[in-house]
């Protein structure tokens, strides 16, 4: 088994906000997240708002400092690196952000944006830069004349391609994509997803694809991690997890994803109160879970255990697999 490209161990991030004169409010955005990505692997990270998935992405790049936990890239401990080393290592891990309209500097031309990583890395001459930028434009399928356009002269899909080109120009080994197509039209999304998949193949990249859309993740990723309120509740091979999920939250996500097919059924009404406060020491999904076993689930936090599909699940009442009624 080859060593993984990226490993995160027990990642934790707590945001403390001061509320009034009285006290501080601690928000555990990411709670004990452990994951690993192998070279060339396509991993999806799925969750809704508040799941902490975007925070995880930023933690992995140390754009946000983890409160606890270890991150290793190609064996190197990221937490131990000084700022300068870290900056150099970041070139191997590129990120594409969600909103194409705000990811590009409004006063830089497309070419300038794409060239930024080269300029920051330094040591590359002007001619080489121009040539590499032109190559990237070919790679992402945009005409070279677009190089001199400003972001406001480009469509959403084109802007996202520019962001992708910028991310790839230094030939990183890992690409983290934070909802790269959520702000795009469906027809454009398909183009971008196809582009990403072909680039991934061609450049032997590893992906961490973050999305709230299960269908997109099914399409692009071989492995998937499901997050809920800061914790990974289930992970495993995409085709298994999405076919017969072990965790009730994954099941509810699945039921809520509406495919455009005739006879698609709306998910069942939520029987349980969803808008409660913070969970105590128990399972975070307890308040909404249709399979909860009180008071056990409320008091004891589930730890990840092997799931029927070979991956992991953190649930006291996990489904045992194809024999159970679950999933889509």
């Amino acid at each position: 088994m080859t060593s993984p490209l990226l490993e995160a161990d027990g990642l934790r991030k707590v945001f403390t906000t001061r509320s009034g004169v009285r006290g501080r409010h601690a928000n555990v955005a990411v709670d004990d997240v452990t994951l690993s990505i192998a070279a060339g692997e396509r991993v999806g990270l799925v969750g809704e708002s508040g799941s902490g998935k975007s925070t995880v992405a930023r933690l992995l790049l140390r754009l946000v400092e983890p409160t606890a936990g270890a991150i290793r890239f190609e064996g190197q401990d990221l937490m131990a690196l000084p700022e300068a080393e870290l900056r150099r290592l970041r070139r191997h891990m590129a990120m594409v952000f969600q909103n194409p309209h705000t990811s590009l500097h409004p006063r830089m031309t497309a070419a300038q944006s794409v060239a930024e990583p080269l300029r920051i890395a330094g040591g590359v001459g002007g001619e080489t830069i121009t040539r590499r930028v032109a190559e990237m434009f070919d790679l992402i399928g945009l005409p070279r004349s677009f190089r001199y356009r400003y972001p406001h002269e480009l469509s959403g899909g084109q802007k996202q391609r520019i962001s992708i080109a910028r991310a790839l120009i230094l030939r990183p080994r890992l690409m983290i994509l934070d909802e790269p197509t959520s702000a795009l039209d469906v027809s454009v999304q398909a183009q971008i997803l196809e582009l990403l998949l072909s680039l991934q193949q061609e450049l032997a990249l590893a992906f961490l694809f973050i999305s709230h859309n299960l269908a997109v993740v099914r399409y692009t990723c071989t492995r998937v991690l499901v997050m809920y309120r800061g914790a990974i509740v289930e992970q495993g091979e995409t085709r298994h997890v999405l076919a017969q999920p072990a965790h009730p939250y994954t099941q509810s996500l699945l039921a809520a994803t509406l495919d455009p097919v005739p006879g698609a059924k709306l998910p069942a009404p939520e029987v349980v109160d969803g808008d409660g406060g913070d969970a105590g020491s128990g399972c975070r999904y307890c308040q909404r879970c249709p399979r909860r076993m009180l008071p056990y689930c409320r008091e004891v936090a589930p730890v990840p255990v092997p799931a029927w599909h070979g991956g992991q699940v953190a649930c006291h009442a996990a489904s045992d697999g194809p024999s159970e009624q679950g999933g889509h």
Partner: peptide, 12 residues
């Protein structure tokens, strides 16, 4: 976001 992008690219 584009400032965050710059940081992620390693800009000083």
């Amino acid at each position: 976001p584009y400032i965050e992008v710059a940081r992620s690219l390693g800009a000083s």
